[in-house]
Lab assay of single mutants.
Amino acid sequence: MKVMIRKTATGHSAYVAKKDLEELIVEMENPALWGGKVTLANGWQLELPAMAADTPLPITVEARKL
């Protein structure tokens, strides 16, 4: 699914347009965010693609819901 990742004042957030859902990312498998699992505030887990740590945000990526 397409997910937009952006930086907020409190960390990172994910927006899933198909579900009209925006949630804070509360847990990251990798400190650089990319190439691992993230957990959203509502409990969803997404697998993000591997990208460079300095990838500019906001960005829309293809993520997989676990």
Rank of each mutant, 00 (worst) to 15 (best):
A32F: 14
P31G: 12
K18D: 15
K18A: 15
T60S: 08
T60H: 06
V61R: 00
A50L: 12
V61S: 02
L57R: 02
A41V: 03
L33C: 07
K18W: 14
G43P: 00
L33G: 06
Y15T: 11
V38S: 01
L24N: 13
I59S: 01
A41N: 07
M4Y: 08
K18E: 15
L33K: 02
L33V: 04
T8N: 09
K19G: 14
L40H: 01
Q45K: 11
L21K: 11
K37M: 13
M1P: 03
A63F: 06
I25G: 00
A9I: 10
N30P: 03
L57Y: 07
P58Q: 03
K65R: 14
V16W: 15
P58K: 02
M1T: 08
L24R: 12
E62P: 07
K19F: 15
W34C: 03
D20Q: 12
N30L: 09
L33D: 03
Q45W: 08
A53I: 11
V61D: 00
L46T: 02
T39G: 03
S13M: 13
L24M: 13
Q45M: 13
L57C: 04
E23S: 15
I5Q: 00
L33M: 14
I25L: 04
K2Y: 13
S13I: 13
E27K: 11
W34S: 03
T39H: 04
E27F: 14
A14F: 09
M4W: 03
D20G: 13
A53E: 13
V3A: 01
I25R: 01
E22A: 08
I25Y: 01
M28W: 14
K37G: 07
K65S: 12
I59M: 09
V38I: 14
V38Q: 00
G43E: 00
P31I: 10
A63W: 03
P58D: 02
K7L: 10
K65E: 11
M1A: 05
E22M: 09
Q45S: 10
A63G: 06
R64S: 08
G35K: 04
K18Q: 14
V3G: 00
V61Y: 00
L48F: 03
H12W: 15
W44Y: 03
E29W: 06
E22N: 09
L24S: 11
H12M: 11
P49L: 05
I5Y: 01
A52F: 07
V26T: 09
I5A: 01
L48Y: 01
P49W: 04
V61T: 04
S13G: 06
T60I: 12
